[in-house]
Design a protein around this nucleic acid. Sequence first.
DNA 1: GTGCACTTCTACAACGATGTAGAGTGTAGG
DNA 2: CCTACACTCTACATCGTTGTAGAAGTGCAC
Lengths: 361, 361
Amino acid sequence: MPVRMQDVAQRAGVSVKTVSNVVNGYPHIRDSTRRRVEEAIDQLGYRMNTSARDLRTRRTGMITLNVPELSLPYFAELADSVIRAADERGWSVLIEQTGAERERELEVLAGNRRHRGDGVLFSPLALGPDDLDRFDVDFPLVVLGERVFGARADHVTMNNVEGARAATAHLIASGRRRIAVVGAHAGEVIGSAALRLAGYERALADAGIPFDPELVGEAGLWHRSTGAETMARLLDSGTAIDAVFALNDAMALGALHALHERRIDIPGDIALIGFDDVDDVRYSVPPISSVDPGRDEIARTAVGLLVERITGSVAPFRRTVPDARIVGRESTGDAQGDGETTVAVRPGRVEDIAVSPLAIA
Amino acid sequence: MPVRMQDVAQRAGVSVKTVSNVVNGYPHIRDSTRRRVEEAIDQLGYRMNTSARDLRTRRTGMITLNVPELSLPYFAELADSVIRAADERGWSVLIEQTGAERERELEVLAGNRRHRGDGVLFSPLALGPDDLDRFDVDFPLVVLGERVFGARADHVTMNNVEGARAATAHLIASGRRRIAVVGAHAGEVIGSAALRLAGYERALADAGIPFDPELVGEAGLWHRSTGAETMARLLDSGTAIDAVFALNDAMALGALHALHERRIDIPGDIALIGFDDVDDVRYSVPPISSVDPGRDEIARTAVGLLVERITGSVAPFRRTVPDARIVGRESTGDAQGDGETTVAVRPGRVEDIAVSPLAIA
DNA sequence: GTGCACTTCTACAACGATGTAGAGTGTAGG
DNA sequence: CCTACACTCTACATCGTTGTAGAAGTGCAC
């Protein structure tokens, strides 16, 4: 029932291949022929059957983005940026949610889930170094985030340690000494939590401030709710606190909530800084300072790496770390109202991973 | 290079079709045969070529969701719900962003954009009644939102009028009389703005409170920033105000920001209610009351309608309106801290649209 | 022993596009 | 006038799967 190239060809009095050539912008076509074909296409309302093209060309023009959930503002904004970056290059994006469940994340790598698209952008939250072997997959893959290092895959990470160091240093520079952390993961040595905590400790050491475990608040999931709970626990513990570094913005918003409940003045009594620089924190009350990890660049780099991996030849795996910066707002006393100050974070490094990719079948 | 059914068939000593039958769960297969095929699949690491299957079956198992942008929390949460609903039924979701640009929204309907997937879920923000004809498309389409009524397509809308009426009535019930509106669109008779304003007016009328145009604040785009600006204008105008109805939550958050800047007490001086019930408002300071339009049900219904339209026979177009409810929080004095009260909104109606769909080619 | 229904499997064409190879022109250069 | 080459177009095989039709085998009732 649907119109095929065959039908267009017949109407225009040319071969199917000529229609294909017109549609695909092949240059050597007489103007009159091109016009006739285009008219036939219009008249018949022809639209290319993508499945047939995909089958023949062995390429779909789609990539899959796997994130924990779009309800988390950071991932929603990441998805936004990824879709834009892909669109600029003419690619479409399929989105799947893993809910940060280990099982579903493993399925992404096993490729057992519906296997569409030419490559996968994967932001794991549940997998860790024990799962490194699973990343040896036979399809183009780019990993986002800080859960897995050393995987045999291209990898785009944030400048976690330096970002966290700069955020903490920023608080110290304004005279704070009792800086609490919201969102630590006890015993973990990988992942954003560990890296950002390391940056925090480094900043303290740089300033000669002793590390006090009482100031470190644990939070498993990095949601607004857990940020609020952790902040409340810290406040109830009775430890003196004059600043808070929330390891992401969602928890910073939760912490703000908890501070408000106790009518604590920000930044008067306690200064607050987050991480991710999502849109929300610009409009919270008061606006919250944050570390901008360079979301657009992360997305653009990741899409670029993936497309290269899909279309290009075999090359060593690469790890890239976009530039980050500190955005100062009212919650750290850097600005009033909608004002903002920004400070660059010491750049991360771009390294080649010293392993070769498996030949992609 | 990649493994085909052919290769599996050879290894298992059966025909290609038998492999296909095993993969697709065709029942009449000897156990021993099935086992041999499955072993061959494992050994060779076979994975179905989806393009070939899609071509043959004339179905891709994907739908496209077109939204303005995922950075807007409402649409991020909608996308989350849509992906979940689709996943439950075994469908994948391709997401495209229109940026609320008229041109791009028209392209969605023209089908000129890459045309993949079996159907489209479309949430327009720029199109209006003038574009009704464009909705006569030759692919399965379900429209979301309030921009277009009477289009020849299935349609899922929010219970705008009743939701807005109930929100306003809620403020009135707590003794407010000078209720400002943030986000009106002057002169528009369609779209969320007009419908929600109508609900507002109806509630005033019900309570015998005169409508005062000075209380109505315009805002073109419904962002946090415009909410803040509009709120500021209203406050600066000098009109007495004891409550604010922001026509969506993003603007409610912006309004909150503006109120905070002037150190106005909420709900002491001014009560505040929004619309959409996005996650953010649960954790703002203070938490903001809102109208919950039933996001999950909207998504589930929309996906259901679309899948039916794709797989099913021709049937009259349907319009559905999920149930909404008022969620009372601190900003209207209904609860303290994380507390919530809920009140059902008078149900919307489910109607058949009195036109038949075009035969889907 | 025959007929019939069910189970199990196969051969072949078809889905709708593109890659390859090459045929038929036209034109410039020798 | 012939050769070389660029331009324009076509015929045909092919991508990897599933639908259709039917063959072969099995079991059971009569």
